[in-house]
Simulated scan of single mutants.
Amino acid sequence: MTEDPLLIIAMLACLVVLVILLLGINSFRKGGADASKQSNKYMQWRLIAQFVAVVLIAIFVFFRGQQGG
């Protein structure tokens, strides 16, 4: 199962979401007007990346359910 390319792509998408989240939190921690704008931008990118990750996971589950295992 860990050799499945779709699973690997979905896991990488989850990792990207985590990295973007940590960057946004770090930017928010710094404070200031510029950091606030940057943190907001990171969180917007996180939402997009999170949507992509959820779609990839749903596709993975759908296709694996079709194959019966």
Rank of each mutant, 00 (worst) to 15 (best):
T2S: 06
T2I: 08
E3R: 06
P5E: 04
P5C: 04
P5R: 03
L6Q: 12
L6W: 06
L7S: 00
L7V: 01
L7R: 04
I8A: 05
I9P: 00
I9G: 01
I9D: 01
A10H: 01
A10Y: 03
M11G: 01
M11W: 05
A13R: 07
A13K: 09
C14E: 07
C14F: 00
C14S: 05
C14D: 04
C14P: 00
L15F: 07
L15S: 06
V16D: 05
V16S: 00
V16E: 02
V16M: 03
V16Y: 01
V16I: 09
V17A: 05
V17D: 00
L18W: 04
L18T: 07
V19L: 07
V19D: 00
I20A: 01
I20G: 00
L21W: 04
L21E: 04
L21H: 06
L22M: 05
L22W: 02
L23N: 05
L23R: 04
G24R: 03
G24A: 01
I25D: 00
I25V: 13
N26R: 06
S27C: 03
S27L: 07
S27P: 00
F28P: 00
F28R: 08
R29V: 09
R29F: 07
K30M: 06
K30G: 03
K30F: 03
G32H: 06
G32Q: 07
G32K: 08
G32A: 05
A33G: 03
A33W: 13
D34G: 08
D34M: 13
D34P: 02
D34Q: 10
A35Y: 09
A35N: 12
A35L: 08
S36I: 09
S36Y: 13
S36E: 12
S36W: 09
S36C: 11
S36P: 01
S36R: 14
Q38T: 13
Q38N: 14
Q38E: 11
S39C: 11
S39F: 03
N40Q: 13
N40M: 12
K41N: 11
K41L: 14
Y42D: 06
Y42G: 02
Y42W: 15
Y42K: 10
M43V: 14
M43T: 15
M43L: 15
W45F: 15
W45E: 12
W45R: 15
W45P: 03
R46A: 15
R46N: 13
L47E: 12
L47D: 12
L47K: 15
I48V: 15
I48Y: 14
A49S: 14
F51V: 15
F51L: 15
F51Q: 11
V52R: 03
V52K: 02
V52F: 11
V52E: 02
V52H: 05
A53C: 11
A53S: 14
A53I: 10
V54K: 08
V55F: 11
V55A: 12
V55W: 07
V55S: 09
V55I: 15
V55P: 00
L56I: 12
L56D: 08
I57E: 07
I57Y: 05
I57Q: 02
I57M: 11
A58C: 13
A58N: 08
I59V: 15
F60A: 10
F60M: 07
F60E: 06
F60G: 04
V61I: 14
F62Q: 09
F62C: 08
F63H: 11
F63E: 13
R64G: 02
R64V: 11
G65Y: 10
Q66D: 04
Q67I: 11
Q67R: 14
G68K: 07
G68M: 10
G69K: 09
G69L: 12
